[in-house]
Design a protein around this nucleic acid. Structure first.
Lengths: 181, 181
DNA sequence: GTCTATACATCGATAGAC
DNA sequence: GTCTATCGATGTATAGAC
């Protein structure tokens, strides 16, 4: 079961998430295609298992990060790990964050780890002084933009993601600057 | 010919770019599917025509923008129009900017308007004081992040895109701030 | 240019034997 | 649980008549 999902990730890495076919997956696992229906009632159930698995991977990765006491450094360390996670496996990023697979909607349970993750992120941003929804939204968009530009225009490189620290400082200082006027 | 591309955009709007099938397209146009091969040698040629058409739409839109004399206001007006263009038609945005259609690579000619557009953008940013490649990259990522977050998390709304003006100021001021230390 | 007819591959899913 | 066999739909593309 877990090994089937792992095989599915392997195929996704080669052909993209949309390119995972049940035939190829069965071949990869060493069984016949109809036998997969013993494990997944439909292809979307497989996607859902991948979605849940990917989110568990993300949580595990972020929990392993040693967070500095300084709130600002903590935000940077957390986001650095998040960005690394996104960039290192594009199909996984697409499934988890871009959610543009044809007819797939994650189930409520599979979505739960994602909410846990988002809460952690918001907590850290609050602790670092970003309090309003607007400020958090902007920070989130900044990180998304770095990942997106990196993947689209310089896959495997660091032309965009290397600016995280500088931009994080800029965003974290901005509320302060605005109040100084 | 142009009407076929228009019909393809209509279908893309309903099913996504990847969901445009030659059968459905022929039905939409009112001819039989094999007849499409009189106009496009393959499906990728159709995608290429859509890509070129979308870029021409983008150029036309941006040329229609009345650019203020003030360089900073010009950047904002330009980016506002760009963001509006991206957000108002998601499949078009995906084809033009995310470029993740299975086996499709735009041809050199179709890509040319895109380069023209990018040059305009970089010029405007230079005029507004963003000179280094790094600063331009960051600005570009910021805009991409707004569009991406908007489309993914609040389609049809303005929760993210409304922050453009504020963020543009922040990015345009940053080099100044750094030189003041 | 448009048609009918069809080839050929691939897909997800089901039936039913073992 | 795993298999064989197969269904039915959909996909792109081609042959050849009109």
């Amino acid at each position: 079961m877990a090994s089937i999902v792992a095989a599915a990730w392997k195929l996704a890495g080669e052909q993209g998430v949309g390119g995972v076919s049940l035939r190829a997956l069965a071949r990869e696992v060493g069984i016949r295609q109809p036998s997969l229906y013993e494990y997944f009632d439909s292809k979307n159930v497989l996607y859902d298992a991948m979605f849940a698995d990917g989110n568990r991977q993300l949580l595990a990765r972020l929990e392993a990060v040693e967070l500095p006491r300084d709130p600002r450094a903590a935000v940077k360390a957390f986001m650095q790990a998040l960005i690394g996670f996104c960039v290192e496996d594009v199909p996984r990023y697409v499934l988890l964050f871009q959610r543009q697979i044809p007819g797939f909607e994650p189930s409520a349970e599979s979505y739960e780890p994602a909410r846990t993750f988002l809460n952690r992120a918001v907590e850290l941003l609050h602790a670092a002084g970003l309090e309003s929804q607007a400020d958090v939204d902007c920070f989130v968009a900044m990180v998304a933009g770095l990942v997106d530009a990196q993947i689209s225009n310089d896959p495997g490189g660091d032309r965009w993601v290397r600016h995280l620290d500088r931009l994080a400082d800029m965003y974290l200082d901005e509320p302060k600057r605005r109040s100084h006027r």
